[in-house]
Design a protein around this nucleic acid. Structure first.
Length: 665
DNA sequence: AGCACGCCGACT
DNA sequence: GTCGGCGTGCTC
């Protein structure tokens, strides 16, 4: 019987991010098993810390008397061995703590839910019926699932009706079929999607293929109790030695779900920024999936209508296999020249070609109009000289919230009823950019007798009716699925969307447009308004991977990710300098900065913070992460306390390190 | 984070 | 000669 337990203490302190050995008291001998929650004395007599048993054994490297564990919290083995290995690796890779990773991997405990699960376990339904993966060369995806293949999958555009009459994207059917293949084989599949609307589609498809107990949904929208119940249902029950195959669906953190026998881990639309984890240690779900597949085996699929530059790089390295539909299915995309004549009467937004397309299509079915901006009017300008209208107190942009409202500042909210142009003192303004609300209003007038539906970030719709004379105005990313597919898709604000200053505007726009075009009915036109060049070409030819390949060439030339890796180091100047010094002789490509943080948005961040960016090759990732991690630990221990006396809520971390932050540069 | 250990100024 | 200041350092 094991006498030593190796425990991860639940603490945010970076210097305690390692395993501590404890003696196992005889009374607890048969309860202390890997994965259970325990309490253990730490440092001072009587002070108890929570922890997780990572492993048990009979020896310890610690020379000193081992303190005995205090108690076992419950019999649930919430830290599965494969999740521990993943959390440790991800933390090390990101210069962070395993505890921070585990916060994403293990939901908060709910005693009632846990008691119920311990008493009755989880359903063990295993699906019987196979669902061959349709639309691809026979057996390509099946053999990837069977043999642990790694695939960059070009999803099928279009929508499909399910047995219950609801409609989903065809991409969801493909992933569900692949997942069923894995569970029939007795293994678990993890399907990660950017947001809950994608998740609903997967759940809808899966409900027609497998018994309900086979699917576990782990996403942030559920209550903690629901999430914990779903989480427990994926674990091995204490009374039961076997692994329970599951299809686990969820958003970005589902990549950490417990799956002892991993058959498949798949991401849909990996370029979506929602896959970037905003919590420390900021690991991108794509990277986690890559690491996990390497550790645990099973198949890896990155599916989507576009190709992220990161995935394209892996395809070119030969690490992922590019798989396209057979026969090729491509939406019909019609670009329009940049300076097209505008139709009168609709606010001048829709060029005449697109207007004609929409008018015609509305007779046959619903028409989708994708706009760039939510809200009503997001930018005003002087009617006389064209100067942008800005708030007099904070210089934020002025906006309108409805037809009759007074302009107000988008940043500070101040009402600007007395606005006058700062250049020419004129007091009348015009609308420069229109949001979904204003566009809907204008289009309603332009297409009389049409029902106009708005779907935006605030109130996104999942589904839209498939009836003619229905105009759906949606902001990019919030497009509902129309029954039967749209009779036409108009992509309106491309020109404006491309103006954003960012390394990946092009990728983002292509992704938004492609995802909207994928909602069209077979043969229905998608009109891209006012955009030409390689982006329009990639969309028209449905060759998003070619665009990604060209982007990768550019990134290599510029030395930008994913051609190489980057770490951003943010904090007080002294802390940043210490972190950079800690890099010592690690062979980094170069260090940009430190420089003052760019003042962005309504409020400038901590004004005395600086940021440096370290660029390095993939080969030196471990060394860079280890060095920066050392700086974090030193700064947490060595550093002086805040000037004595005051007790503030949170001593803001003075050093923040992000590896591979997609928003950098 | 806490909390103990440790080496310099006023004290019964 | 001690009691205690909170500057460093450790937590099995």
């Amino acid at each position: 019987m094991a006498s030593v337990a190796r425990v991860l203490i639940d603490t945010p302190l970076p210097q305690l991010d390692r395993l501590f050995d404890y003696a196992i008291p005889l009374a607890l001998a048969d309860q202390v098993v890997p994965g259970v929650r325990v309490t253990a004395p730490l440092r001072a007599e009587g002070r108890l810390a929570d922890g997780l048993v990572v492993e048990v054994g009979d020896t310890s490297d610690f020379d000193g008397a081992l303190t005995p564990l205090e108690s076992v919290v419950s019999a649930a083995r919430v830290l599965a061995p494969e999740v521990w290995a993943l959390a440790r690796r991800i933390a090390d890779r990101q210069a962070g703590s395993a505890n921070d990773v585990l916060r994403l991997a293990i939901p908060r405990r709910s005693v009632a839910v846990e008691r119920k699960w311990l008493a009755q376990g989880a359903p063990r339904e295993v699906p019987r019926a196979a669902h061959p993966v349709a639309g691809y060369e026979g057996g390509v995806i099946e053999s990837a699932v069977d043999d642990g293949g790694r695939v960059a999958l070009r999803s099928l555009p279009g929508v499909v009706e399910l047995a219950d009459g609801s409609w989903v994207g065809r991409w969801a059917v493909t992933l569900a079929q692949a997942a069923v293949r894995a569970v029939i084989d007795g293994r678990t599949a993890i399907l990660a999607v950017p947001d809950y609307r994608d998740q609903e589609q997967l759940e809808a498809v899966l409900s027609t293929m497998v018994p309900a107990g086979t699917v576990a949904s782990l996403d942030a929208r559920r209550t903690n109790a629901q999430r914990y119940a779903a989480f427990l249902s994926c674990l091995a029950h204490p009374d039961d030695s076997g692994h329970t195959p599951r299809i686990i669906v969820g958003n970005r953190s589902v990549v950490y779900a417990p799956a002892a026998e991993l058959g498949l881990i798949a991401l849909y639309d990996d370029g979506d920024p929602l896959f970037a984890e905003p919590l420390a240690p900021y690991a991108h779900a794509r990277d986690v999936a890559l690491v996990r597949q390497q550790q645990q085996g099973g198949a890896l699929i990155f599916a989507g209508h576009t190709r992220s530059v990161e995935v394209q790089r892996l395809v070119e390295l030969g690490y992922l296999h590019d798989v396209a539909p057979v026969p090729l299915v491509t939406p019909k995309v019609v670009p329009t020249a940049a300076q097209q004549q505008r139709q009168a009467g609709d606010g001048g937004r829709v060029p005449s070609a697109a207007f004609r397309t929409a008018t015609e299509a509305l007779q046959a079915g619903p028409v989708l109009v994708q706009v760039g901006r939510p809200g009503y009017v997001s930018l005003l300008a002087c009617r006389r000289c064209g100067q942008a209208a800005r708030c007099t107190s904070c210089a934020g942009p002025l906006q309108l919230s409805s037809a009759r409202s007074v302009p107000s500042c988008a940043w500070c909210g101040r009402i600007a009823g007395d606005w006058a142009c700062s250049e020419c003192n004129n007091t009348s303004y015009r609308m420069v950019t229109r949001g979904s609300g204003r566009t809907a209003e204008e289009l309603g007038r332009a297409f009389p007798g049409t029902r106009v539906i708005v779907s935006d970030g605030d109130r996104p719709l999942t589904h839209a009716p498939g009836e003619p004379h229905t105009l759906v105005v949606a902001t990019r990313g919030a497009e509902p699925i129309a029954a039967g597919g749209y009779a036409a898709v108009i992509l309106l604000d491309g020109e404006w969307m491309l103006q954003r200053e960012s390394l990946h505007v092009g990728d983002d726009c292509l992704r938004w447009w492609s995802n909207a075009a994928a909602l069209a009915a077979p043969g229905a036109p998608t009109v891209l308004v006012g955009v030409g060049g390689p982006l329009a070409q990639a969309l028209t030819l449905w060759q998003q991977h070619s665009y990604a390949a060209a982007q990768l060439v550019d990134r290599r030339a510029l030395g930008f990710p994913p051609a190489l890796r980057v770490a951003s180091v943010t904090g007080k100047p002294a802390a940043v300098q210490a972190a950079l010094d800690a890099l010592g002789d690690v062979p980094v490509r170069d260090v940009l900065g430190p420089a003052a943080l760019p003042a962005e948005g309504p409020r400038a961040l901590d004004d005395d913070f600086v940021r440096a960016i370290v660029r390095f090759d993939y080969a030196h990732g471990d060394a860079v992460a280890a060095a920066l991690r050392g700086a974090i630990v030193r700064q947490a221990t060595g550093g002086r306390r805040p000037p004595a006396g005051r007790k503030r809520g949170r001593p803001a971390p003075t050093l923040r390190i992000k590896l591979d932050d997609p928003e950098i540069l």
